[in-house]
Simulated assay, not measured.
Amino acid sequence: MGGSEISRSEEKSGIGFVKLFENNVVFPGFLVWMNQTIQEPIKAEFKRLRNVKELSLVKSVSKIETIYDEHRDEEKLEKQLQAWRDNPSWIDQPPKVVVKSQNGLFCHLNVEADVGLPPELVYNIFTHPDNKRYFKNIKENISRKVLISEGLKQTVEVKQAAAWKFLWWAGTCPIHLIVEENRKNLTSKYKQETTMFMKVFEGCWKVEPLFIDEHLCERSKPKSQEDYHSCSNGRGRIGSKVTMDQMFQPSALLTPPPLSWYIRGITIKTTESMIEDLFAEATRLRGGKGGGYIADQEENNVVFEKNKADDIKERWRSHRRTKRRRFTNAKTM
């Protein structure tokens, strides 16, 4: 008989069933199925554990690299700030402010200012969660929520209470902004989420490096901060060029003059005030004394406010005279 046959005695004792099972006589695919059923989950679990381990390793390495980069950036920034402390001489120049309006309603405000601090530090001041410590017009940071975070980019929802002062009036107003911050190129975009006094309020700003002591580089003009650091032997100070572009339009209730003029004046004054506060903080961090624009502003502040008051009064008189002339001409025709 063939190798698959068993004797009657083996069949009675049950040994034959075992032999049939071992020789794959009964259920020829059963052992294969059992093998797959047991081994496949084990293989899958080992694979999962290996992936988890690899992912954990990648995260650990990434975290170490992030900490190292942050430490290196802080060290680099401290060296730049030390260069300013070694040579704090700097005269703040008045910012360049250009205002263009369309039909006296929609306004475009462009501001350029040079600041005696490194760009990364200026950016940190602007984006600090508690930046009311730097800017007097921010009375309260109500809330700050990070909506999206992608490395050096993040989108933040900001709610603040801002103070305003114009001529003889003063008060506070709520601000609700969605801000897109990009630390890689030191830029930011913002847009008002909910409006109260403004129909439109949005804009952007950026911070660019200024090579203050470029004369130390005798051979060639530096094209990057690395070149500047090398050719100046680390003694060259790096300043910042801040550029702001802001678009705003008063709400319908505040459109008629002179209300629209007041809102326009408040917005411009608030922006200029932020630049003044930035200059003051830069002076403090440099360890030097203020000078130039800040000193002049403190001395001429009363005269400045009076001139603005006279200007708005004259514009209102001119507006009324023009309106009366139009009415008279229409009546005589």
Rank of each mutant, 00 (worst) to 15 (best):
residue 6 I to C: 07
residue 14 G to S: 03
residue 15 I to P: 04
residue 16 G to L: 06
residue 21 F to H: 12
residue 22 E to G: 04
residue 28 P to T: 02
residue 29 G to Q: 11
residue 37 T to R: 05
residue 45 E to T: 02
residue 45 E to R: 02
residue 46 F to W: 00
residue 46 F to C: 02
residue 46 F to M: 01
residue 47 K to F: 00
residue 47 K to Y: 01
residue 56 S to F: 04
residue 58 V to C: 05
residue 60 S to T: 08
residue 65 E to F: 03
residue 68 Y to S: 15
residue 69 D to V: 13
residue 86 D to F: 10
residue 90 W to F: 15
residue 92 D to Q: 10
residue 101 S to Y: 13
residue 101 S to A: 15
residue 102 Q to V: 12
residue 107 C to W: 01
residue 108 H to M: 03
residue 110 N to Y: 12
residue 111 V to C: 04
residue 112 E to D: 08
residue 113 A to I: 02
residue 114 D to L: 11
residue 117 L to M: 15
residue 122 V to W: 04
residue 125 I to A: 12
residue 129 P to K: 13
residue 130 D to F: 03
residue 131 N to Q: 08
residue 133 R to A: 12
residue 135 F to W: 07
residue 140 E to F: 07
residue 142 I to M: 09
residue 142 I to F: 01
residue 146 V to P: 11
residue 148 I to L: 07
residue 149 S to A: 09
residue 151 G to C: 07
residue 155 T to L: 12
residue 157 E to C: 10
residue 160 Q to K: 15
residue 161 A to D: 03
residue 166 F to V: 02
residue 168 W to I: 05
residue 168 W to V: 01
residue 175 I to N: 00
residue 176 H to A: 08
residue 182 N to H: 13
residue 192 Q to N: 01
residue 194 T to N: 09
residue 199 K to E: 14
residue 203 G to C: 11
residue 206 K to P: 04
residue 206 K to S: 15
residue 206 K to H: 09
residue 211 F to I: 06
residue 216 L to P: 01
residue 224 S to Q: 14
residue 226 E to H: 10
residue 237 R to Y: 11
residue 238 I to P: 10
residue 246 Q to A: 13
residue 247 M to F: 14
residue 248 F to S: 04
residue 249 Q to F: 02
residue 249 Q to E: 14
residue 250 P to I: 03
residue 254 L to E: 06
residue 264 R to A: 04
residue 268 I to W: 01
residue 269 K to P: 01
residue 270 T to W: 00
residue 271 T to M: 06
residue 273 S to T: 10
residue 276 E to F: 02
residue 281 E to S: 15
residue 281 E to C: 11
residue 282 A to F: 05
residue 288 G to D: 05
residue 289 K to A: 12
residue 290 G to N: 01
residue 292 G to E: 04
residue 300 N to G: 03
residue 301 N to A: 13
residue 302 V to D: 09
residue 306 K to E: 08
residue 307 N to I: 09
residue 307 N to K: 15
residue 313 K to C: 05
residue 315 R to Y: 07
residue 318 S to I: 01
residue 322 T to N: 14
residue 323 K to N: 13
residue 326 R to P: 01
residue 329 N to D: 14
residue 332 T to G: 01
